[in-house]
């Protein structure tokens, strides 16, 4: 094992912004900042009167990406793109959608908000998706000989 491209400071700073944003949503609206759950309520709504704030939140996520590029925070931000082929992108995106809805949460909802509240469900969910993601990358990169 070799350590590569280690960037702890932007990671800590960005992570803190994520934690702060989630706390702000909780303070203002009493909502957990689970991105898959917020998006899910737009894509397949349970309550038609509960969509507008979700749309604004999702719009904000995209806006945050634009601001990052405009402000030139990232040198070489133009180089950020997908690194696997189209079939893997499709299967990956599908499984992320399916898995987060079945498991009621993703990296933000379970990994940040849930763990911060010491939810045992979120701990198990986080261990499951981290574990299966590590195994998946191991199989793809070291066993299959592809990628």
């Amino acid at each position: 094992m070799t350590i590569i491209n280690f960037t702890p400071l932007p990671a800590l700073l960005g992570g803190s912004l994520i934690g702060l944003a989630a706390a702000f949503l909780l303070l203002a609206q009493g909502r957990v900042a689970g991105i898959s759950g917020i998006a899910g309520g737009i894509i397949y709504p349970e309550d038609k009167n509960d969509i507008s704030w979700r749309l604004m939140f999702v719009l904000g996520l995209v806006l945050g990406g634009f601001i990052y590029q405009w402000m030139g925070f990232g040198v070489g931000v133009g180089h950020i793109r997908a690194i696997v082929d189209t079939p893997l992108l499709i299967i990956g995106g599908l499984l992320v959608g399916i898995g987060t809805q079945i498991g009621t949460g993703c990296t933000s909802g379970h990994g940040i908000c849930g763990l911060a509240r010491r939810s045992p469900r979120s701990l198990v969910a986080t261990l499951c998706f981290m574990g299966s993601a590590v195994v998946t990358v191991y199989v793809v990169r070291h066993l299959s000989g592809v990628a």
Binding site: I35, L88, G92, L95, G99, I102, C106, V124
Partner: peptide
């Protein structure tokens, strides 16, 4: 929570993208 978590992790590991 277990099945969903595992499926999500496979998708994350294949494409490198989670929902956010």
């Amino acid at each position: 929570i277990i099945i969903g978590g595992i499926l999500f992790g496979i998708g994350w590991g294949l494409a490198g993208y989670c929902p956010g």
